[in-house]
Design a protein around this nucleic acid. Structure first.
Length: 174
DNA sequence: GCCAACGTTGGC
DNA sequence: GCCAACGTTGGC
């Protein structure tokens, strides 16, 4: 039996890597690298399936918010940045091991919120009270999102397909 | 920049 | 395996 689609939330600091950065990649697809937490790694490695959908969340910024939706287009593979001494994500222990202890997945941006859904807004919604993201001291950079939470959040602001947005906004650059 | 809440490290 | 020290995250 084919398992049903699961939903996730992934945090990123937009100063380091923003949703716009993902949109700028070929095919709006990129490797989600640099996750250096076992719990988050295990979710990616053991739970992420092809086609799962992911909220992209901007953290450590003036207005923390969910900015868009991406789709898992490649399941977990070794995160090679852990073996690259020049990478910000270099991990000496992986180097000592001779293999990366970390994994990455590839995600493709598919939709953006017309109005990003702010953390403040999420906190104001009673039906999201038990959401993982809103728990005090929740630092996990990859979190499961229930189908109910997913649908509710998607109803809070219109979603714009990224390929459409590209056509509308991208100047001709040939 | 503060600080609470974690997670990791390493001595024992 | 305990746990103190240290580092990191991330909202405010």
């Amino acid at each position: 039996m084919v398992s049903s689609k699961k939903y996730w939330l992934m945090k990123t600091e937009p100063e380091t890597y923003s949703f716009a950065d993902l949109l700028s990649k070929p095919g709006r697809t990129d490797g989600w690298e640099g996750v250096r937490n076992y719990q988050a790694r295990n979710l990616m490695r053991d739970e992420f399936s092809y086609g799962d959908e992911v909220f992209i969340y901007h953290s450590s910024t003036a207005e923390p918010c969910i900015v868009g939706v991406a789709r898992v287009v490649r399941t977990a593979y070794p995160d090679q940045t852990a073996l690259n001494p020049k990478s910000d994500y270099f991990d000496p222990k992986s180097q000592a091991l001779g293999a990366s202890r970390w994994v990455a997945v590839e995600v493709q941006a598919i939709k953006r919120f017309h109005e990003p859904v702010s953390l403040k807004r999420l906190r104001a919604e009673a039906s999201l009270a038990s959401m993982a993201l809103l728990r005090p001291g929740q630092r996990l950079s990859i979190q499961p999102v229930s189908e109910g939470e997913w649908r509710y959040i998607c109803s809070l602001s219109p979603l714009v397909a990224c390929d459409v947005a590209e056509r509308e906004t991208a100047p001709l650059s040939l």
